[in-house]
Design a binder for these strands. Structure first.
Length: 559
RNA sequence: UGGGCCGUCGCCAAGCGGUAAGGCACCAGGUUUUGAUCCUGGCAUGCGCAGGUUCAAAUCCUGCCGGCCCAGCCA
Protein backbone atom coordinates (compact mmCIF):
# COMPACT_ATOMS: atom_id res chain seq x y z
CA UNK A 1 0.00 0.00 0.00
CA UNK A 2 2.10 2.86 -1.26
CA UNK A 3 -0.71 5.36 -0.79
CA UNK A 4 -0.29 5.49 2.96
CA UNK A 5 3.46 5.61 2.91
CA UNK A 6 3.65 9.35 2.98
CA UNK A 7 5.06 10.34 6.32
CA UNK A 8 2.56 12.67 7.90
CA UNK A 9 5.22 14.31 10.01
CA UNK A 10 6.98 15.61 6.93
CA UNK A 11 3.91 17.42 5.71
CA UNK A 12 3.87 21.16 5.87
CA UNK A 13 1.92 24.07 4.48
CA UNK A 14 4.08 24.30 1.38
CA UNK A 15 3.61 20.65 0.55
CA UNK A 16 -0.10 21.12 1.06
CA UNK A 17 -0.16 23.99 -1.42
CA UNK A 18 1.78 21.93 -3.94
CA UNK A 19 -0.49 18.96 -3.47
CA UNK A 20 -3.51 21.20 -4.05
CA UNK A 21 -1.94 22.63 -7.20
CA UNK A 22 -1.38 19.14 -8.50
CA UNK A 23 -4.89 18.00 -7.54
CA UNK A 24 -6.54 21.02 -9.11
CA UNK A 25 -4.55 20.56 -12.29
CA UNK A 26 -2.88 23.96 -11.97
CA UNK A 27 0.40 22.16 -12.48
CA UNK A 28 1.19 18.85 -14.11
CA UNK A 29 4.69 18.71 -12.72
CA UNK A 30 6.47 20.77 -10.19
CA UNK A 31 9.75 22.60 -10.55
CA UNK A 32 11.73 24.16 -7.74
CA UNK A 33 15.16 25.64 -7.34
CA UNK A 34 17.74 26.24 -4.66
CA UNK A 35 19.20 29.70 -5.36
CA UNK A 36 22.29 30.48 -3.28
CA UNK A 37 24.45 33.50 -3.83
CA UNK A 38 28.05 32.29 -4.17
CA UNK A 39 29.33 34.67 -1.53
CA UNK A 40 29.97 32.24 1.30
CA UNK A 41 29.71 28.67 2.42
CA UNK A 42 26.47 26.84 2.95
CA UNK A 43 25.29 26.33 6.51
CA UNK A 44 22.65 24.35 8.35
CA UNK A 45 20.08 27.01 7.51
CA UNK A 46 20.66 26.42 3.83
CA UNK A 47 20.26 22.71 4.48
CA UNK A 48 16.68 23.41 5.49
CA UNK A 49 16.04 25.14 2.19
CA UNK A 50 17.89 22.48 0.22
CA UNK A 51 15.94 19.67 1.84
CA UNK A 52 12.72 21.54 1.24
CA UNK A 53 13.34 22.41 -2.40
CA UNK A 54 14.97 19.18 -3.46
CA UNK A 55 12.80 17.09 -1.18
CA UNK A 56 9.56 18.50 -2.49
CA UNK A 57 10.68 17.99 -6.08
CA UNK A 58 11.73 14.43 -5.32
CA UNK A 59 8.55 13.50 -3.49
CA UNK A 60 6.21 14.99 -6.06
CA UNK A 61 8.11 13.64 -9.02
CA UNK A 62 9.36 17.05 -10.06
CA UNK A 63 12.71 18.65 -10.60
CA UNK A 64 14.94 21.02 -8.73
CA UNK A 65 17.62 23.26 -10.16
CA UNK A 66 20.67 24.58 -8.46
CA UNK A 67 20.87 28.21 -9.47
CA UNK A 68 23.57 30.61 -8.49
CA UNK A 69 22.22 34.06 -7.82
CA UNK A 70 25.34 35.71 -9.12
CA UNK A 71 24.29 39.29 -9.74
CA UNK A 72 26.77 41.02 -7.46
CA UNK A 73 30.30 40.33 -8.72
CA UNK A 74 31.91 42.30 -5.93
CA UNK A 75 30.91 39.78 -3.31
CA UNK A 76 30.94 36.55 -5.20
CA UNK A 77 33.69 34.06 -5.91
CA UNK A 78 34.04 30.86 -7.81
CA UNK A 79 35.55 29.19 -4.75
CA UNK A 80 32.20 29.59 -3.04
CA UNK A 81 30.29 28.22 -6.01
CA UNK A 82 32.50 25.14 -6.04
CA UNK A 83 32.02 24.58 -2.34
CA UNK A 84 28.26 24.99 -2.67
CA UNK A 85 28.06 22.32 -5.35
CA UNK A 86 30.11 19.99 -3.21
CA UNK A 87 27.94 20.60 -0.15
CA UNK A 88 24.65 20.08 -1.97
CA UNK A 89 25.91 16.78 -3.35
CA UNK A 90 27.28 15.76 0.00
CA UNK A 91 23.89 16.37 1.56
CA UNK A 92 22.59 13.84 -0.91
CA UNK A 93 20.92 15.84 -3.65
CA UNK A 94 21.50 16.15 -7.37
CA UNK A 95 20.12 19.05 -9.35
CA UNK A 96 18.39 18.53 -12.65
CA UNK A 97 19.98 21.66 -14.07
CA UNK A 98 22.87 23.80 -12.92
CA UNK A 99 21.95 27.40 -13.66
CA UNK A 100 23.35 30.86 -13.17
CA UNK A 101 21.39 34.07 -13.07
CA UNK A 102 24.27 35.48 -15.09
CA UNK A 103 23.26 33.18 -17.95
CA UNK A 104 20.12 35.30 -18.23
CA UNK A 105 21.83 38.69 -18.36
CA UNK A 106 21.03 39.16 -22.01
CA UNK A 107 17.37 38.25 -21.54
CA UNK A 108 17.14 40.34 -18.42
CA UNK A 109 18.47 43.27 -20.41
CA UNK A 110 15.89 42.72 -23.11
CA UNK A 111 13.08 42.59 -20.56
CA UNK A 112 14.34 45.85 -19.09
CA UNK A 113 14.01 47.48 -22.49
CA UNK A 114 10.51 46.07 -22.67
CA UNK A 115 9.72 47.79 -19.38
CA UNK A 116 11.19 51.07 -20.57
CA UNK A 117 9.16 50.86 -23.75
CA UNK A 118 6.02 50.47 -21.72
CA UNK A 119 6.92 53.47 -19.65
CA UNK A 120 7.39 51.22 -16.64
CA UNK A 121 11.04 51.93 -16.01
CA UNK A 122 13.26 54.97 -16.17
CA UNK A 123 16.87 55.96 -15.84
CA UNK A 124 17.49 58.06 -12.76
CA UNK A 125 20.44 60.37 -12.19
CA UNK A 126 19.84 60.88 -8.50
CA UNK A 127 22.71 59.96 -6.21
CA UNK A 128 22.38 57.11 -3.74
CA UNK A 129 21.85 59.57 -0.90
CA UNK A 130 19.23 61.49 -2.80
CA UNK A 131 17.38 58.34 -3.63
CA UNK A 132 17.30 57.48 0.01
CA UNK A 133 15.89 60.89 0.85
CA UNK A 134 13.33 60.73 -1.93
CA UNK A 135 12.22 57.29 -0.80
CA UNK A 136 10.51 58.74 2.28
CA UNK A 137 10.25 56.76 5.48
CA UNK A 138 8.15 54.00 6.97
CA UNK A 139 5.48 56.50 7.87
CA UNK A 140 5.90 59.12 5.14
CA UNK A 141 5.45 58.61 1.41
CA UNK A 142 8.34 59.14 -0.95
CA UNK A 143 8.46 61.74 -3.67
CA UNK A 144 9.11 61.47 -7.37
CA UNK A 145 12.55 61.84 -8.79
CA UNK A 146 12.91 64.72 -11.27
CA UNK A 147 13.86 62.06 -13.82
CA UNK A 148 10.71 60.06 -13.30
CA UNK A 149 9.03 61.42 -16.42
CA UNK A 150 11.94 61.23 -18.75
CA UNK A 151 10.84 60.25 -22.26
CA UNK A 152 10.97 56.66 -23.37
CA UNK A 153 13.44 57.58 -26.10
CA UNK A 154 15.76 59.26 -23.66
CA UNK A 155 15.50 56.35 -21.22
CA UNK A 156 16.31 53.93 -24.00
CA UNK A 157 19.34 55.94 -25.00
CA UNK A 158 20.59 56.39 -21.46
CA UNK A 159 20.13 52.70 -20.68
CA UNK A 160 21.99 51.77 -23.85
CA UNK A 161 24.79 54.08 -22.76
CA UNK A 162 24.81 52.42 -19.34
CA UNK A 163 25.33 49.11 -20.97
CA UNK A 164 27.96 50.54 -23.27
CA UNK A 165 29.94 51.53 -20.21
CA UNK A 166 29.79 55.23 -20.85
CA UNK A 167 29.13 56.15 -17.23
CA UNK A 168 30.79 55.71 -13.92
CA UNK A 169 29.51 53.63 -11.03
CA UNK A 170 26.55 55.29 -9.37
CA UNK A 171 26.02 57.87 -12.06
CA UNK A 172 22.75 56.40 -13.26
CA UNK A 173 20.29 53.80 -12.14
CA UNK A 174 17.48 52.03 -13.91
CA UNK A 175 14.37 52.11 -11.74
CA UNK A 176 10.94 50.58 -12.01
CA UNK A 177 8.18 53.16 -12.18
CA UNK A 178 5.65 51.89 -9.67
CA UNK A 179 4.42 54.00 -6.78
CA UNK A 180 6.46 56.39 -4.66
CA UNK A 181 3.63 56.57 -2.14
CA UNK A 182 3.26 52.85 -1.64
CA UNK A 183 3.04 51.68 1.95
CA UNK A 184 5.40 48.96 0.86
CA UNK A 185 8.77 50.60 0.49
CA UNK A 186 9.89 47.96 -1.97
CA UNK A 187 7.36 49.35 -4.42
CA UNK A 188 8.68 52.93 -4.31
CA UNK A 189 10.39 52.74 -7.68
CA UNK A 190 12.91 50.05 -6.79
CA UNK A 191 16.28 49.84 -8.52
CA UNK A 192 16.45 47.39 -11.41
CA UNK A 193 19.98 47.91 -12.71
CA UNK A 194 23.02 49.58 -11.24
CA UNK A 195 26.29 50.50 -12.89
CA UNK A 196 29.08 48.42 -11.45
CA UNK A 197 32.28 48.18 -13.41
CA UNK A 198 33.38 45.00 -11.77
CA UNK A 199 34.75 41.82 -13.19
CA UNK A 200 32.24 39.04 -12.93
CA UNK A 201 33.33 35.46 -12.16
CA UNK A 202 31.53 34.16 -15.20
CA UNK A 203 30.85 37.01 -17.58
CA UNK A 204 34.14 38.78 -17.06
CA UNK A 205 34.06 42.39 -18.24
CA UNK A 206 31.24 42.09 -20.70
CA UNK A 207 28.78 43.89 -18.43
CA UNK A 208 29.28 47.25 -16.75
CA UNK A 209 25.75 47.02 -15.35
CA UNK A 210 24.22 44.34 -13.16
CA UNK A 211 20.56 43.58 -12.44
CA UNK A 212 19.23 43.70 -8.89
CA UNK A 213 17.95 40.70 -6.99
CA UNK A 214 14.25 41.56 -7.10
CA UNK A 215 14.32 42.02 -10.82
CA UNK A 216 16.55 39.05 -11.53
CA UNK A 217 15.08 36.44 -9.29
CA UNK A 218 11.51 36.41 -10.53
CA UNK A 219 12.54 36.44 -14.16
CA UNK A 220 15.10 33.70 -13.60
CA UNK A 221 12.39 31.62 -11.94
CA UNK A 222 10.07 32.23 -14.89
CA UNK A 223 12.73 31.34 -17.45
CA UNK A 224 13.38 28.05 -15.68
CA UNK A 225 9.70 27.26 -15.43
CA UNK A 226 9.74 27.22 -11.66
CA UNK A 227 6.28 26.47 -10.30
CA UNK A 228 6.91 27.23 -6.64
CA UNK A 229 9.58 29.70 -5.66
CA UNK A 230 10.36 29.03 -2.03
CA UNK A 231 12.19 31.64 -0.03
CA UNK A 232 12.51 32.95 3.49
CA UNK A 233 10.22 35.29 5.39
CA UNK A 234 12.17 38.50 4.84
CA UNK A 235 11.14 38.37 1.20
CA UNK A 236 7.43 38.54 1.97
CA UNK A 237 7.44 42.27 1.39
CA UNK A 238 9.14 41.68 -1.93
CA UNK A 239 6.43 39.43 -3.29
CA UNK A 240 4.36 42.32 -4.67
CA UNK A 241 7.42 43.38 -6.62
CA UNK A 242 8.11 39.82 -7.74
CA UNK A 243 4.56 39.69 -9.07
CA UNK A 244 4.69 43.19 -10.52
CA UNK A 245 7.71 42.42 -12.68
CA UNK A 246 6.23 39.19 -13.96
CA UNK A 247 2.96 40.92 -14.74
CA UNK A 248 4.60 43.71 -16.70
CA UNK A 249 6.92 41.58 -18.76
CA UNK A 250 6.13 38.68 -21.08
CA UNK A 251 7.72 35.69 -19.41
CA UNK A 252 6.95 32.01 -20.09
CA UNK A 253 5.16 31.60 -16.76
CA UNK A 254 4.47 33.21 -13.43
CA UNK A 255 5.83 31.18 -10.53
CA UNK A 256 4.30 31.47 -7.09
CA UNK A 257 6.59 32.75 -4.37
CA UNK A 258 5.98 31.16 -0.99
CA UNK A 259 7.86 32.23 2.11
CA UNK A 260 8.86 30.13 5.11
CA UNK A 261 10.76 30.84 8.31
CA UNK A 262 14.50 30.49 8.13
CA UNK A 263 16.20 28.13 10.52
CA UNK A 264 17.62 29.58 13.67
CA UNK A 265 19.60 27.40 16.06
CA UNK A 266 20.33 28.33 19.63
CA UNK A 267 23.91 29.07 20.67
CA UNK A 268 25.16 29.47 17.16
CA UNK A 269 25.01 31.78 14.22
CA UNK A 270 23.53 31.32 10.78
CA UNK A 271 24.35 34.49 8.98
CA UNK A 272 26.81 34.37 6.14
CA UNK A 273 28.07 37.81 7.03
CA UNK A 274 28.81 36.85 10.61
CA UNK A 275 30.25 33.48 9.67
CA UNK A 276 32.50 35.32 7.28
CA UNK A 277 33.63 37.59 10.07
CA UNK A 278 34.46 34.63 12.32
CA UNK A 279 36.55 33.17 9.54
CA UNK A 280 38.33 36.28 8.34
CA UNK A 281 39.11 37.50 11.86
CA UNK A 282 40.44 34.04 12.69
CA UNK A 283 38.13 33.39 15.59
CA UNK A 284 37.75 29.98 14.03
CA UNK A 285 39.89 27.81 11.86
CA UNK A 286 38.32 28.38 8.43
CA UNK A 287 34.86 27.81 7.00
CA UNK A 288 35.11 24.13 7.85
CA UNK A 289 35.94 24.64 11.49
CA UNK A 290 34.03 21.84 13.24
CA UNK A 291 32.48 24.34 15.64
CA UNK A 292 30.73 26.14 12.82
CA UNK A 293 27.24 25.24 11.61
CA UNK A 294 28.49 25.30 8.04
CA UNK A 295 27.92 22.10 6.12
CA UNK A 296 31.66 21.75 5.66
CA UNK A 297 32.18 22.30 9.38
CA UNK A 298 29.52 19.78 10.33
CA UNK A 299 31.02 17.31 7.88
CA UNK A 300 34.47 17.72 9.40
CA UNK A 301 32.90 17.40 12.83
CA UNK A 302 31.45 14.04 11.85
CA UNK A 303 27.82 14.86 11.15
CA UNK A 304 26.35 12.62 8.48
CA UNK A 305 24.19 13.83 5.59
CA UNK A 306 21.42 11.53 6.76
CA UNK A 307 21.40 13.09 10.22
CA UNK A 308 21.10 16.58 8.77
CA UNK A 309 18.31 15.54 6.45
CA UNK A 310 16.55 13.93 9.37
CA UNK A 311 16.97 17.12 11.36
CA UNK A 312 15.50 19.22 8.59
CA UNK A 313 12.51 16.95 8.47
CA UNK A 314 11.96 17.05 12.20
CA UNK A 315 12.02 20.80 12.59
CA UNK A 316 9.27 21.30 10.07
CA UNK A 317 8.49 24.17 7.76
CA UNK A 318 6.22 27.00 8.90
CA UNK A 319 5.99 30.77 8.85
CA UNK A 320 6.69 31.07 12.55
CA UNK A 321 9.96 32.59 13.69
CA UNK A 322 11.55 29.94 15.78
CA UNK A 323 14.72 28.92 17.49
CA UNK A 324 15.57 25.25 17.51
CA UNK A 325 17.46 23.76 20.42
CA UNK A 326 20.82 22.15 19.68
CA UNK A 327 19.54 19.05 21.43
CA UNK A 328 17.39 18.28 18.40
CA UNK A 329 20.38 18.29 16.06
CA UNK A 330 22.40 16.29 18.56
CA UNK A 331 19.65 13.76 18.89
CA UNK A 332 19.63 13.28 15.12
CA UNK A 333 23.33 12.57 14.87
CA UNK A 334 23.29 10.34 17.93
CA UNK A 335 20.46 8.33 16.50
CA UNK A 336 22.28 7.82 13.21
CA UNK A 337 25.66 7.09 14.74
CA UNK A 338 24.29 4.83 17.44
CA UNK A 339 23.06 2.62 14.68
CA UNK A 340 26.05 2.77 12.37
CA UNK A 341 29.21 3.64 14.27
CA UNK A 342 31.78 0.98 15.07
CA UNK A 343 32.51 0.66 18.79
CA UNK A 344 36.11 1.02 19.87
CA UNK A 345 37.96 2.01 23.02
CA UNK A 346 39.97 5.14 23.43
CA UNK A 347 41.26 6.82 26.56
CA UNK A 348 41.10 10.58 26.41
CA UNK A 349 42.85 11.43 29.67
CA UNK A 350 45.04 8.43 30.50
CA UNK A 351 45.74 7.13 33.98
CA UNK A 352 48.29 4.35 34.19
CA UNK A 353 47.18 1.12 35.81
CA UNK A 354 49.56 -1.69 36.65
CA UNK A 355 47.98 -5.06 37.23
CA UNK A 356 50.30 -6.44 39.85
CA UNK A 357 49.36 -10.09 39.62
CA UNK A 358 49.33 -10.23 35.82
CA UNK A 359 52.37 -11.90 34.18
CA UNK A 360 55.07 -9.48 33.12
CA UNK A 361 55.49 -10.37 29.46
CA UNK A 362 52.12 -11.78 28.65
CA UNK A 363 49.80 -10.38 25.98
CA UNK A 364 46.35 -11.72 25.37
CA UNK A 365 44.04 -11.17 22.44
CA UNK A 366 40.54 -10.54 23.65
CA UNK A 367 37.44 -10.44 21.54
CA UNK A 368 35.30 -7.32 21.37
CA UNK A 369 32.03 -6.66 19.56
CA UNK A 370 32.02 -3.94 16.95
CA UNK A 371 28.42 -3.20 17.81
CA UNK A 372 26.65 -4.79 20.77
CA UNK A 373 23.22 -4.70 19.13
CA UNK A 374 24.31 -5.64 15.65
CA UNK A 375 26.23 -8.93 15.35
CA UNK A 376 26.54 -8.38 11.60
CA UNK A 377 29.15 -5.76 12.29
CA UNK A 378 31.43 -8.47 13.58
CA UNK A 379 34.10 -8.59 16.22
CA UNK A 380 37.73 -7.65 16.55
CA UNK A 381 40.55 -8.58 18.86
CA UNK A 382 42.16 -6.20 21.27
CA UNK A 383 45.43 -6.79 23.06
CA UNK A 384 45.58 -6.92 26.84
CA UNK A 385 48.69 -6.77 29.01
CA UNK A 386 50.01 -5.92 32.44
CA UNK A 387 50.03 -2.15 32.07
CA UNK A 388 46.95 -0.40 30.77
CA UNK A 389 45.47 3.06 30.68
CA UNK A 390 42.08 3.94 31.96
CA UNK A 391 40.23 7.24 32.02
CA UNK A 392 41.20 9.61 34.83
CA UNK A 393 37.50 10.23 35.43
CA UNK A 394 37.00 6.56 36.10
CA UNK A 395 38.92 6.72 39.35
CA UNK A 396 37.97 8.64 42.44
CA UNK A 397 39.81 8.36 45.72
CA UNK A 398 36.86 9.46 47.81
CA UNK A 399 34.08 7.94 45.83
CA UNK A 400 30.43 8.32 46.74
CA UNK A 401 28.26 5.21 47.10
CA UNK A 402 26.72 5.62 43.68
CA UNK A 403 30.05 5.95 41.90
CA UNK A 404 30.23 2.70 39.97
CA UNK A 405 33.84 3.01 38.93
CA UNK A 406 37.26 2.45 40.41
CA UNK A 407 38.30 3.50 43.86
CA UNK A 408 40.55 1.97 46.42
CA UNK A 409 39.24 -1.45 47.35
CA UNK A 410 36.54 -1.43 44.70
CA UNK A 411 36.16 -3.84 41.83
CA UNK A 412 35.19 -2.94 38.28
CA UNK A 413 35.04 -4.73 34.99
CA UNK A 414 37.44 -3.82 32.22
CA UNK A 415 35.27 -4.06 29.17
CA UNK A 416 35.74 -7.41 27.39
CA UNK A 417 38.71 -8.18 29.71
CA UNK A 418 38.88 -8.86 33.45
CA UNK A 419 37.60 -7.67 36.79
CA UNK A 420 40.17 -5.64 38.61
CA UNK A 421 40.34 -4.29 42.11
CA UNK A 422 42.37 -1.28 43.08
CA UNK A 423 44.75 -1.93 45.92
CA UNK A 424 47.14 0.96 45.89
CA UNK A 425 47.37 4.53 44.71
CA UNK A 426 50.57 6.21 43.63
CA UNK A 427 50.71 9.97 43.76
CA UNK A 428 53.25 12.53 42.67
CA UNK A 429 54.73 15.11 45.00
CA UNK A 430 51.74 17.39 44.46
CA UNK A 431 49.36 14.70 45.52
CA UNK A 432 48.00 13.98 42.09
CA UNK A 433 47.16 10.37 41.39
CA UNK A 434 49.55 9.18 38.70
CA UNK A 435 49.22 5.45 38.85
CA UNK A 436 47.00 2.74 40.21
CA UNK A 437 48.07 -0.69 41.32
CA UNK A 438 45.36 -3.27 40.79
CA UNK A 439 44.80 -7.00 41.11
CA UNK A 440 42.91 -8.92 38.46
CA UNK A 441 40.82 -12.04 38.78
CA UNK A 442 42.04 -14.55 36.19
CA UNK A 443 38.68 -16.32 36.27
CA UNK A 444 36.86 -13.31 34.84
CA UNK A 445 38.43 -13.33 31.40
CA UNK A 446 36.10 -11.79 28.88
CA UNK A 447 34.30 -9.86 31.57
CA UNK A 448 32.15 -12.26 33.52
CA UNK A 449 32.78 -14.30 36.62
CA UNK A 450 31.92 -17.96 37.15
CA UNK A 451 30.54 -17.18 40.60
CA UNK A 452 28.16 -14.69 39.09
CA UNK A 453 29.11 -11.89 41.45
CA UNK A 454 27.82 -8.50 40.51
CA UNK A 455 30.13 -5.80 39.32
CA UNK A 456 28.17 -2.68 38.60
CA UNK A 457 30.82 -0.70 36.80
CA UNK A 458 32.38 -1.39 33.42
CA UNK A 459 35.14 0.89 32.23
CA UNK A 460 37.11 1.17 29.03
CA UNK A 461 40.86 0.75 28.80
CA UNK A 462 43.74 0.40 26.40
CA UNK A 463 46.90 -1.69 26.70
CA UNK A 464 49.83 0.65 27.26
CA UNK A 465 52.22 -1.40 25.20
CA UNK A 466 49.86 -1.54 22.25
CA UNK A 467 48.11 1.81 22.39
CA UNK A 468 48.50 4.33 19.64
CA UNK A 469 48.79 8.00 20.42
CA UNK A 470 46.43 10.51 18.93
CA UNK A 471 45.21 14.06 19.30
CA UNK A 472 41.59 14.53 20.10
CA UNK A 473 39.52 17.66 19.65
CA UNK A 474 36.56 18.11 21.93
CA UNK A 475 33.98 20.67 20.94
CA UNK A 476 31.45 22.60 22.89
CA UNK A 477 28.96 25.23 21.73
CA UNK A 478 30.67 28.09 19.93
CA UNK A 479 28.78 30.76 21.85
CA UNK A 480 27.79 31.21 25.45
CA UNK A 481 24.71 33.17 24.46
CA UNK A 482 21.59 31.47 23.05
CA UNK A 483 21.17 34.16 20.42
CA UNK A 484 24.55 35.71 19.74
CA UNK A 485 23.28 37.45 16.62
CA UNK A 486 20.99 39.56 18.77
CA UNK A 487 23.77 40.89 20.98
CA UNK A 488 25.69 44.11 20.46
CA UNK A 489 28.84 42.26 19.64
CA UNK A 490 28.50 38.54 19.10
CA UNK A 491 32.28 38.10 19.10
CA UNK A 492 32.27 38.77 22.84
CA UNK A 493 30.15 35.72 23.39
CA UNK A 494 32.46 33.21 21.80
CA UNK A 495 32.81 30.32 24.21
CA UNK A 496 36.45 30.12 25.36
CA UNK A 497 35.85 26.43 25.96
CA UNK A 498 34.46 25.75 22.51
CA UNK A 499 37.56 23.74 21.63
CA UNK A 500 39.64 21.51 23.89
CA UNK A 501 42.67 19.95 22.29
CA UNK A 502 43.87 16.76 23.89
CA UNK A 503 47.19 15.23 22.97
CA UNK A 504 48.67 11.84 23.71
CA UNK A 505 45.31 10.21 24.02
CA UNK A 506 45.61 6.42 23.99
CA UNK A 507 43.60 4.50 21.44
CA UNK A 508 43.24 0.85 20.69
CA UNK A 509 45.51 -0.26 17.81
CA UNK A 510 42.84 -0.73 15.15
CA UNK A 511 42.34 3.03 14.98
CA UNK A 512 45.69 3.39 13.26
CA UNK A 513 43.92 2.36 10.09
CA UNK A 514 40.95 4.66 10.52
CA UNK A 515 39.88 6.55 7.45
CA UNK A 516 38.13 9.89 7.45
CA UNK A 517 34.82 8.51 6.35
CA UNK A 518 34.44 6.07 9.25
CA UNK A 519 32.49 7.08 12.29
CA UNK A 520 33.46 5.57 15.62
CA UNK A 521 31.92 5.39 18.99
CA UNK A 522 34.63 5.51 21.60
CA UNK A 523 32.68 3.55 24.17
CA UNK A 524 31.41 5.63 27.05
CA UNK A 525 32.85 8.88 25.70
CA UNK A 526 31.24 9.81 22.43
CA UNK A 527 31.30 9.64 18.67
CA UNK A 528 34.45 10.51 16.80
CA UNK A 529 35.72 10.90 13.28
CA UNK A 530 39.24 11.24 11.97
CA UNK A 531 40.09 14.79 11.04
CA UNK A 532 40.59 15.55 7.38
CA UNK A 533 42.90 18.54 7.65
CA UNK A 534 45.62 17.75 10.15
CA UNK A 535 48.59 15.53 9.31
CA UNK A 536 49.01 14.01 12.77
CA UNK A 537 46.49 11.36 13.75
CA UNK A 538 43.63 13.42 15.11
CA UNK A 539 40.04 12.64 15.97
CA UNK A 540 37.21 15.11 16.29
CA UNK A 541 34.41 14.48 18.72
CA UNK A 542 31.17 14.73 16.82
CA UNK A 543 28.97 14.58 19.90
CA UNK A 544 29.12 13.06 23.37
CA UNK A 545 27.03 10.13 24.44
CA UNK A 546 24.11 10.96 26.70
CA UNK A 547 25.64 11.12 30.14
CA UNK A 548 23.23 10.41 32.97
CA UNK A 549 26.06 10.22 35.48
CA UNK A 550 27.27 13.69 34.59
CA UNK A 551 23.75 14.92 35.18
CA UNK A 552 23.46 13.23 38.56
CA UNK A 553 26.92 14.40 39.54
CA UNK A 554 26.06 17.95 38.61
CA UNK A 555 22.83 17.84 40.59
CA UNK A 556 24.67 16.48 43.62
CA UNK A 557 27.23 19.22 43.47
CA UNK A 558 24.53 21.84 43.23
CA UNK A 559 22.18 20.43 45.83
C1' U B 1 3.63 54.78 15.58
C1' G B 2 2.97 53.08 7.51
C1' G B 3 3.00 48.13 5.47
C1' G B 4 3.77 42.76 5.68
C1' C B 5 3.83 38.33 8.68
C1' C B 6 3.43 35.36 13.14
C1' G B 7 1.42 33.71 18.25
C1' U B 8 -0.96 25.48 20.11
C1' C B 9 3.47 22.18 26.47
C1' G B 10 10.50 24.37 28.17
C1' C B 11 12.00 23.99 22.29
C1' C B 12 9.84 22.52 17.59
C1' A B 13 5.04 21.00 15.45
C1' A B 14 0.13 18.49 13.74
C1' G B 15 -4.69 20.41 13.72
C1' C B 16 -8.57 23.62 8.58
C1' G B 17 -16.12 23.72 13.40
C1' G B 18 -17.06 17.85 16.51
C1' U B 19 -14.35 18.06 21.77
C1' A B 20 -5.56 18.92 21.81
C1' A B 21 -1.01 13.91 17.02
C1' G B 22 4.14 13.47 17.13
C1' G B 23 9.43 14.72 18.02
C1' C B 24 13.21 16.93 21.25
C1' A B 25 13.85 18.09 26.41
C1' C B 26 12.40 16.68 31.18
C1' C B 27 10.64 13.09 35.18
C1' A B 28 9.78 7.93 37.05
C1' G B 29 10.64 2.73 36.36
C1' G B 30 12.74 -1.90 33.71
C1' U B 31 16.73 -4.47 30.70
C1' U B 32 22.01 -3.89 29.99
C1' U B 33 29.80 -6.37 30.11
C1' U B 34 29.01 1.34 27.25
C1' G B 35 25.87 5.24 34.05
C1' A B 36 25.18 4.33 26.06
C1' U B 37 21.39 1.85 23.41
C1' C B 38 16.61 -0.33 24.09
C1' C B 39 11.70 -0.76 26.60
C1' U B 40 7.48 1.07 29.71
C1' G B 41 4.90 5.02 31.90
C1' G B 42 4.29 10.41 32.98
C1' C B 43 4.29 15.31 30.85
C1' A B 44 -1.51 21.42 27.56
C1' U B 45 -9.65 20.50 31.03
C1' G B 46 -5.59 23.78 27.49
C1' C B 47 -4.46 26.44 22.06
C1' G B 48 -1.44 35.07 23.33
C1' C B 49 -5.79 37.78 25.93
C1' A B 50 -11.02 39.42 26.09
C1' G B 51 -15.63 39.24 24.09
C1' G B 52 -19.08 37.19 20.37
C1' U B 53 -21.42 33.38 16.76
C1' U B 54 -22.70 28.01 17.38
C1' C B 55 -25.74 22.26 20.16
C1' A B 56 -20.29 22.33 19.64
C1' A B 57 -14.57 26.96 18.59
C1' A B 58 -7.38 26.04 18.72
C1' U B 59 -10.35 26.18 14.32
C1' C B 60 -15.47 31.46 12.36
C1' C B 61 -16.16 37.05 13.81
C1' U B 62 -14.60 41.58 16.63
C1' G B 63 -11.23 44.13 19.65
C1' C B 64 -6.87 44.12 22.23
C1' C B 65 -1.74 42.33 23.63
C1' G B 66 3.06 40.40 22.29
C1' G B 67 6.97 39.16 18.65
C1' C B 68 9.54 39.31 13.79
C1' C B 69 10.62 41.80 8.98
C1' C B 70 11.00 46.33 5.63
C1' A B 71 13.58 52.95 4.49
C1' G B 72 21.09 48.66 0.13
C1' C B 73 22.61 51.35 -6.39
C1' C B 74 23.06 43.48 -0.94
C1' A B 75 20.72 38.83 -1.59
Amino acid sequence: MAADDTDISSNNFIRNIIQDDLDSGKHKAIQTRFPPEPNGYLHIGHAKSICLNFGVAEDFGGQCNLRFDDTNPEKEEDEYAQAIEEDVRWLGFEWSKLCYASDYFEQLYAYAIELINQGKAYVDSLSAEQIREYRGSLTEPGKASPDRNRSIEENLQLFANMRAGKYQDGEFLLRAKIDMASANINMRDPALYRIKKANHQRTGDTWPIYPMYDYTHCISDAIEGITHSLCTLEFEDHRPLYDWVLNEVKTPCHPRQIEFARLQLKYTITSKRKLNQLVTENHVDGWDDPRLPTLSGLRRRGYTPASIRDFCERIGVTKKDSFIEMAVLENCIREDLNQHAIRVMGVLNPLKVTIENYPEDKTEDLTAKNHPQNPDMGTRTIPFSKVIYIEQDDFLEDAPRKFFRLSIGREVRLRYAYYITCTEIIKDEKGKVIELICQYDPLTRGGSSPDGRKVKGTIHWVSAAHAIDANINLYDRLFTHPNPAATDNFIEYINPQSLTRLTQCKLEPCLAEADTSSHYQFERTGYFVKDTQVAALTFNRTVTLRDTWAKIDKQNNQG
